[in-house]
């Protein structure tokens, strides 16, 4: 992996209480599957993001276990029901133990 994975998240700025909104997330990552071989024919070790989770004010919203069959730069689109104003927290866990996070606030009126 050349650069540090950069998360990008799209959350609406505001919503009505109880509204179901759509969240989109993307993180730059090679998602090396462990199936490929380098020029000398040696297998390239697996290095993927194996877990993604989204929380709202500390409550779990959506999570996903990833396997090597997920494409590079893993993209997720999912929904969330927002009862009140608060913060969405997004977490990606790498095979090497690194954790990448992002946070987005939403106003509920």
């Amino acid at each position: 992996m050349a650069a540090t994975p950069k998360p990008r998240v799209k959350v609406p700025k505001s919503a009505k209480a109880g509204e179901v909104i759509v969240l989109k997330t993307l993180i730059s990552h090679d998602m090396e599957s462990g199936q490929r071989k380098d020029k000398e024919g040696k297998p390239i070790p697996r290095k993927i993001i194996n877990k993604f989770a989204c929380e709202f004010n500390g409550q779990p919203v959506f999570s996903c276990d990833l396997d090597p069959a997920i494409s590079a730069n893993p993209y997720f689109e999912f929904s969330a029901k927002v009862p009140e104003s608060g913060t969405f927290k997004f977490t990606w866990v790498d095979d090497d133990g690194s954790i990448y996070t992002d946070e987005q606030k939403i106003e509920v009126n």
Binding site: Q59, P60, A80
Partner: peptide
């Protein structure tokens, strides 16, 4: 319950 709907989109190999 906070998911609202059980729907998701991603990209796979």
């Amino acid at each position: 319950a906070l998911s609202g709907t059980a729907a998701a989109t991603t990209r796979m190999r």
